Computed example of a mutant assay.
Amino acid sequence: MFTAINAASAYNAARTAVSPGQAGGAVEKLSTAAADFAQQMAQVDTVSTGAMTGQVETHRLVQTIAEAEMAMETVVAIRDKVVEAYQEILRMPV
Rank of each mutant, 00 (worst) to 15 (best):
V76R: 15
Q39E: 11
V76K: 15
E73N: 12
R79T: 13
A71I: 02
M72V: 12
S9N: 10
V44I: 07
R60Y: 08
T58G: 02
V18W: 03
A26D: 05
N12H: 02
E57H: 10
A35P: 00
M72N: 13
R79K: 14
Y86C: 06
A68C: 04
R79Y: 13
A7L: 08
V82W: 09
A42H: 07
S19A: 13
V18K: 02
E28N: 09
F37I: 10
V75T: 11
S9W: 06
Q40Y: 01
D36T: 13
A7V: 03
I5M: 00
A71W: 03
F37H: 11
V76A: 15
M72T: 11
M92K: 11
I5D: 03
N12G: 00
A13H: 05
T16W: 02
Q40H: 00
F37V: 07
V82C: 12
T74Q: 15
A33N: 04
A51I: 02
A38P: 06
I89Y: 12
V27P: 01
V27Q: 09
T46C: 00
T58Y: 15
V94S: 13
T74L: 15
E88R: 08
T46F: 02
Q87K: 09
S19Q: 12
P20S: 00
A23C: 11
H59V: 09
F37M: 11
A8I: 01
A38Q: 15
S9I: 07
R60M: 13
G21L: 08
V62I: 15
A34R: 14
Q55K: 13
V75Y: 13
N6D: 01
G50E: 03
M92W: 07
K29I: 01
Y11A: 06
S19Y: 09
P20N: 01
M52A: 09
N6I: 00
G24V: 10
A42I: 10
V76F: 15
Q39K: 14
E88S: 07
V27N: 03
T46V: 04
M1I: 00
S31D: 08
Q22G: 01
T53S: 11
S9D: 03
A8H: 02
V27C: 00
V44F: 08
G54D: 01
T16P: 02
V27W: 03
P20R: 00
T32V: 06
S31M: 07
E28H: 09
V56Q: 03
S48M: 12
A38G: 12
A13I: 02
V94E: 13
V62E: 05
D36F: 12
E73T: 09
A35W: 01
V62C: 02
D80E: 15
A17Y: 04
I78G: 05
V18H: 00
A34M: 12
A23E: 10
F2E: 08
A34Q: 14
A17R: 08
G21C: 05
G24P: 05
I5Q: 04
A42V: 06
G25N: 10
M52C: 06
L90D: 04
G25K: 09
R79M: 13
G50M: 01
A34P: 05
